[in-house]
Every structure is written in structure tokens, then in C-alpha cells.
Design a protein around this nucleic acid. Structure first.
Length: 469
RNA sequence: GGUGGAAUGGCCGAGAGGCGAGGCACAGGACUGCAAAUCCUGCUACACGGGUUCAAAUCCCGUUUCCACCUCCA
């Protein structure tokens, strides 16, 4: 069996993964800044790293997965003014929206989900340490800055030169010693929320929370730090600067997911609400959206289109239909088995698209096995397909998706009813009264019930009701 | 200006020196009373121009087009 290799943004290479502590993996993922409802780009990140996590767990690692919520930030404060709500109500509202979106897509809840505002003490301790070590300074107005010029290394992740950075226009009116210095802490302005510190009341800058929380939950160094590609600079560079200046090892490797784009462009620029998760979920089920988002390689741009989303839904339903049929024939839910083809693909930097080709092959063989009534082969392929889908978080038998379980009684009653109707149809067909038998089939179809005549007799299923867009 | 990424068949999307990834769509066939589902067959591409090589979608040089980041974006 192959072993896992992952691409590391820092070294720009795919190398064998070796955890700091044998058998254990620690991951910190930059989660949401809760200032707006999630769009599908946000949850792609969640899905991509959820697949990583599931694969690590399946590979036998004990996994600690921290995904933060940044619940204090300029944009949240602006939004609070705009929505005429307290900033903390805005943050909570959108945090819930993210939680719901993650749940709809079967993204496992993190081991812990720390909020920035719950870690002010840790941030103050970290700033004090940075000041003591001469890496940070408090100019006296209440701000605290990290002094970039004192760093022995900076911008190693994005491989830029400090001198090449375009400095911000408003640099002259700040208290910075150098325009590239960044704020660890911001002095309170009138009306802003603030917390007391040795340097005066204020609130966290953007980057500090992640360094403080990673230290709190994962320790001085940990295995993998993840996030969206756009966080490489400045967010992750500044996290590195803070944590390393404080004397901590910090992240051993870095993983970044690519964006979902529209018309070749990154989403945020011209985003209406049409690409919000909530809206997309009116056209496809969560499991189908996940299949779509997780199907592309995590480092490839995913060019969103409704047609492509529909295609993903179609192909997923085909796989799902096979699993349900297999379950009917076998009389038992398939188990989860990881075959070597799938494992090899996943071990190669989570090559999901390659893994998908393997699933297609299993599906074909599984369908052939159904035709030839080879129960052993049906079992084998159904198990392997379910095993693969479970890693991708798209297992139709997962309680998160398997709505049939929730209404067993109703399903049984409906099945009995349909069987009565199908008996009528069968006798019509025996009489060669196809007009009547087709009328029954069409009537059921109009109610959203699809009838298929198989070698094992007629089979019914509920068609998905298109709520359209 | 600096740093990265991308261009593959009607469409989506992998791969990274040699053996046609895969899917969707479409066409033909098998099966079927007809459908549906399923299977089989067909369609066979790597932005452009050079070069290296026995062999290039893949490596090298150049070009074009597009995208991103460069201090508060997943």
C-alpha cells in the first residue's frame, strides 16, 4: 500500500507526509471571517480540508482539527453599522449561516472551533512576548505593531522581497516605524468594541488570532496549516512572522485550496447572492453540491457553471442509484471498503479526480454484476464505491444525508401503496393493455414516482422534485 | 513593477517523455410491448512558434491570451 504525500506551499513540492508525532496529525484551518453569508467558494475550502481530514482518519491517524471563527474585524464592524445590529449579533448570525452550510455539505465539525474574541488573553500574552523579544512595539497610541524589518526571514511562503511590496497609501498617517509593519492590535476608536490591554483599550488586528489560537490548541508547532490561496499573503506570512518571532516552530507544512471562479474570475468581485450556498441548495442537494465542489483537485481552479453542477448531480445520482439497487439485491447496506486504486490516488496529494475514474470503473463493473446477478461482485463493488464515497463525504447511507431512515414508517406505507398500484399495472400488462399500464406509470411519474421495469420486476423511486431556480 | 497560477476534444475535467484517465452530451447497437435503467461501440484533444529527443500534451527557449496576490478575501 502506498503512503501519503502532500503538496506543501512552503517548499513548493509534493513530499511524503510525516507527522511530528507518530500516528497523530494536528491541523489548523483558517475558517470564516463571519461578515457575510457563505458562498460556494467558502465551503469549497471546508470540503477540501474535510476530505483531507477524512483521509487522514481512514489512514489511521488520530487527528486534531482546529478551524477558527474570526468574529471581530473591520468588515464585521462596518456590517454592524449597515445592518443596524450590534457587531456581535452580526458575527453570530453569519457564524450560524456557515455552520448550517457546513452541515448541509456534511463537513465534519472541527475538533474545536475557537472564536477570536474568546482568546484576547492569549493574544495579549503573545504580544507581550513579542515586545519582550524586540519583535513588536507599542508606539503609545494604543496600537501594537510587528516590526517587519527585524525579522530574519519574512515572506518565505509567498517568496516575495520586502522591498517589492507596494506600500499602502495611508502609511504616513500611522504610527508605524515602517510602512510594511502590520498591526497586531488596534487602538479603540470611539464606538468600537474594545478590550483592556497594557497598551490601552483596543481590539485585535487581523492576523494575531490565528497565531494565538493555534498555539493554544495545537502547541508551539503542528503539522499542517491550511486555508484559501488568497491567504498566503498577507495573512499566513504574518502568522508566520508573529509565531516565529515569538520563538515557536509553528506550521510544519502549508496547504492552500484554489478558488471557485465565475467567468474566469474570483468570486468575491462581482458576487450577487446567486452563488451563496443557501441559494445553490435550492437547485441541488447538499450531497450533490459537495460532489461537485470536492470533485475537482483542491489546487485547481473550479470554474463554476450551473451546467457543470447539473452534470455532477447527474453522475452522482447514477452512483447513488447503483448503491441503492445493490442494497435491495443484497438485502443489506454495503460496507465501506477502501481499495488500492482509490488509496493510491488519495495518497498522491489527494488526487480526487483520478480516484473518481476508479469509482467509474467500479460502477461499470458493479452494474454488469447486477445484470449477471453475480452477488459476490455486486457486494465487492458496492463496498468499494461506498468506501470511496465515505472519504469524499458523499456516502448516501451517511445519516447526514440518508433521509430515508428518518421516515421508515412512511416509506413502508408508501411502498405498500405503490405495490398495490403496481399489481394493477402488472395485470394490465399481462392483458397486453399497455394503454392502461402506461397510464399508471405516467400517473405515478406525475406524482414524482419513477417506475422502472427491471429483470427483478418493477422498481420504484422518488424522483427529485425540481424546485428550479 | 514584484510573485505565482492557467490555456487539453461539443462541454467538464485528470495526467506530466512512449502504452487512448474518467465523466457529461451526442450517434449507433443490445435489452424492452414501449419507456426508464444498464451494457457495448463510435467521436480522440493538449494556446502559438521554435528547439532537445529514437519518441514531447509532458522537457527547454520564446510568444499570445487570461487570472490571482502585492496589508484586513476561502
Amino acid at each position: 500500500m502506498s503512503s501519503l504525500s502532500l503538496y506543501d506551499t512552503l517548499s513548493r513540492a509534493t513530499t511524503p507526509f510525516t507527522p511530528l508525532v507518530a500516528g497523530r496529525v494536528s491541523i489548523y484551518l483558517c475558517g470564516a471571517t463571519v461578515q457575510a453569508p457563505p458562498h460556494i467558494g467558502h465551503v469549497r475550502s471546508g470540503v477540501n480540508f474535510d476530505i483531507l481530514r477524512r483521509w487522514l482518519i481512514a489512514s489511521g491517524y488520530e487527528t486534531t482539527f482546529i478551524r477558527n471563527v474570526t468574529d471581530i474585524d473591520d468588515k464585521i464592524l462596518h456590517k454592524a453599522v449597515h445592518e443596524e445590529m450590534p457587531w456581535w449579533a452580526v458575527a453570530m448570525k453569519y457564524e450560524r449561516a456557515f455552520t448550517e452550510a457546513y452541515a448541509a455539505l456534511n463537513v465534519m465539525p472541527p475538533t474545536y472551533e475557537p472564536r477570536a474574541t474568546g482568546h484576547i488573553t492569549q493574544m495579549i500574552e503573545l504580544m507581550q512576548r513579542l515586545i519582550d523579544r524586540g519583535a513588536a512595539y507599542a508606539p503609545g497610541n494604543g496600537d501594537v505593531y510587528l516590526e517587519v524589518r527585524t525579522l530574519t526571514s519574512y515572506l518565505t511562503l509567498s517568496r516575495q522581497n520586502v522591498d517589492d511590496l507596494q506600500s499602502s497609501e495611508d502609511a504616513e498617517e500611522t504610527f508605524k516605524r515602517d510602512p510594511r509593519d502590520f498591526a497586531l492590535w488596534k487602538a479603540a476608536k470611539p464606538g468600537d468594541p474594545s478590550w483592556p490591554t497594557p497598551w490601552g483599550p483596543g481590539r485585535p488586528g487581523w492576523h494575531l488570532e490565528c497565531s494565538a489560537m493555534a498555539l493554544t490548541y495545537l502547541g508551539e508547532s503542528f503539522d499542517i496549516h491550511g486555508g484559501g490561496l488568497d491567504l498566503v499573503f498577507p495573512h499566513h506570512e504574518n502568522e508566520i512572522a508573529q509565531s516565529e518571532s515569538a520563538g515557536y516552530g509553528f506550521a510544519k507544512s502549508w496547504m492552500h485550496n484554489a478558488w471557485v471562479t465565475t467567468s474566469g474570475e474570483k468570486m468575491s468581485k462581482s458576487l450577487g447572492n446567486s452563488l451563496q450556498v443557501e441559494h445553490i441548495l435550492k437547485t441541488v442537494r447538499g450531497i450533490e453540491l459537495r460532489w461537485y465542489l470536492g470533485g475537482a483537485h483542491y489546487r485547481s481552479m473550479l470554474e463554476f457553471s450551473h451546467a457543470a453542477l447539473e452534470e455532477a448531480s447527474t453522475s452522482f445520482r447514477r452512483i447513488e442509484a447503483f448503491l441503492y439497487r445493490a442494497k435491495e439485491i443484497l438485502g443489506d447496506t454495503p460496507t465501506r471498503v477502501i481499495n488500492e486504486t482509490f488509496a493510491a490516488a488519495m495518497n498522491d496529494d489527494l488526487a480526487v479526480p483520478t480516484a473518481l475514474a476508479g469509482i467509474s470503473e467500479s460502477l461499470r463493473l458493479g452494474n454488469i454484476a447486477i445484470t449477471s446477478d453475480d452477488k459476490g461482485a455486486i457486494q465487492k463493488h458496492a463496498n468499494e464505491i461506498r468506501g470511496a464515497l465515505s472519504i469524499l463525504g458523499c456516502d448516501p447511507f451517511d445519516p447526514a444525508f440518508d433521509s430515508a431512515n428518518a421516515s421508515e414508517d412512511l416509506t413502508a406505507a408508501l411502498d405498500g401503496t405503490i405495490q398495490l398500484v403496481l399489481a394493477q399495472r402488472a395485470s394490465a400488462r399481462d392483458r397486453k393493455d399497455f394503454e392502461s399500464s402506461d397510464a399508471i406509470r405516467d400517473g405515478l411519474l406525475a406524482l414524482g414516482i419513477t417506475i422502472e421495469d427491471t429483470a427483478q420486476g418493477p422498481r420504484w423511486s422518488i424522483s427529485r422534485t425540481e424546485s428550479s431556480n
